[in-house]
Amino acid sequence: MARDYYGILGVDQNATDAEIKKAYRRLARKYHPDVNDTDEAAEKFREISVAQEVLLDPRKRSIVDRGGDPMEQGQAVGGGAGGFGFGDIFEAFFGEGGTTGGGPRSRVQPGNDALLRTTISLAEAFSGTRKDVTVDTAVICEHCHGTGSESESKPVTCDECGGQGQVQQVQQSFLGNIMTTTSCPKCSGFGEIITDPCQKCGSQGRVRSRRDISVKIPAGIVGGMRIRMAGQGEVGHGGGPAGDLYVEVETETHPVFVREGDNLHLKVNVPMYDAALGTAVEVENLAGETTTIDIPAGTQPEEEIVLKGEGMPRLRREGAGDMVAHVQVVVPTDLTKEQRRGLEELRDSHEGAAFVEEEAGQDEGFFSRLRDRFRR
């Protein structure tokens, strides 16, 4: 089931970007790891951060409004991943920046999410596929097993800040002496020091590594959606739990078909005489099989012929969309004498002649098609 991103942030579907950011900051003050270090809070903070990212991205928000979930496995799970820097933290607490206080930072921190993109063909989106991708992220340091210590010993309390992670300084100004609190420069705000840093990771507990993984791409996926791979993102500082990896999938253009939702559209050029008498056209569908499009006698220009269930499979639902053939009637320009004589005989035997439609001005559909033609 698609997640309720509006409900996660407590806003309605018509919320503006400013309202979404305000709701995020309100919840971040409650669930950010610096103020709430429980596992439940960490998961909630990740959840509201993803919700804000989705709703501030017009393309992903449109997927949500259509009932989809751009961040779920197989939904596309379609624009950045949820990494959070100090600027994000300050904005979450103060809106436009500020300073935080109160105790040392945890050395073991959850990792950021990671994002990569891959491109598939429309045929692969139709049938589903597996894609091998190369990921370059932080992974746990195998030399120290994430401890950051060469001997894997525990850190010791910082003698500069006494384990507080902060130091106070008195600065003179024209207003007098001002007391300021800053992060401890010796322990970088952790309140503890690793006395024998790991030679491979430099006490970070993680190193950069490139690895290949296989991504399962479900049938019916829409370009711009993302596939979420839990725990495949960046390992956190101090060997903290890894974030998630999001694979954003784009689809290539197809020489015959244009996708619109779950439907596939194509143009079929039909000679004038075939449109009058009827014919059949064969086309290779995205499964590599032959589909026959029957053109009934008397087919008119720009008429649409719908083949039910011949379109894209519906993602995470039963059934498939339709294949829609747009008929373009082709009028011959180079006629032989015999062909011209035959058409003249047909015209002479047919009742009616060219005329101006008097009520065309009241036909909204006519003007809609006219506007579409000028936009091309």
Rank of each mutant, 00 (worst) to 15 (best):
E289K: 14
I295G: 04
E289L: 13
K308W: 05
I295N: 07
E338F: 10
A276W: 10
V283M: 03
V331Y: 15
E284G: 07
I295H: 03
P271G: 06
K337M: 11
I293Q: 00
D322A: 00
A275Q: 09
R317V: 02
P296E: 04
P313K: 03
A280M: 09
G309I: 09
V329T: 08
P271K: 06
A287Y: 06
K337W: 09
N269A: 13
T279H: 02
E304T: 08
H326G: 02
R316K: 15
A276R: 15
N269I: 09
P332W: 12
A297Q: 05
V330P: 02
V331S: 14
T336H: 13
R314L: 10
L307I: 02
D322I: 04
E310W: 02
P271I: 06
E282M: 10
G321T: 07
D334K: 15
A275V: 07
A280K: 13
N269Y: 11
M323V: 01
E303K: 03
L315Y: 02
E282A: 13
T333I: 13
G309A: 12
I293K: 00
I293Y: 05
R316I: 10
G278F: 01
P296A: 01
E284F: 05
I295E: 00
A276M: 15
G319H: 07
D322G: 05
N285S: 09
E338K: 15
V331L: 15
V329Q: 07
I293M: 01
N269C: 08
P332M: 14
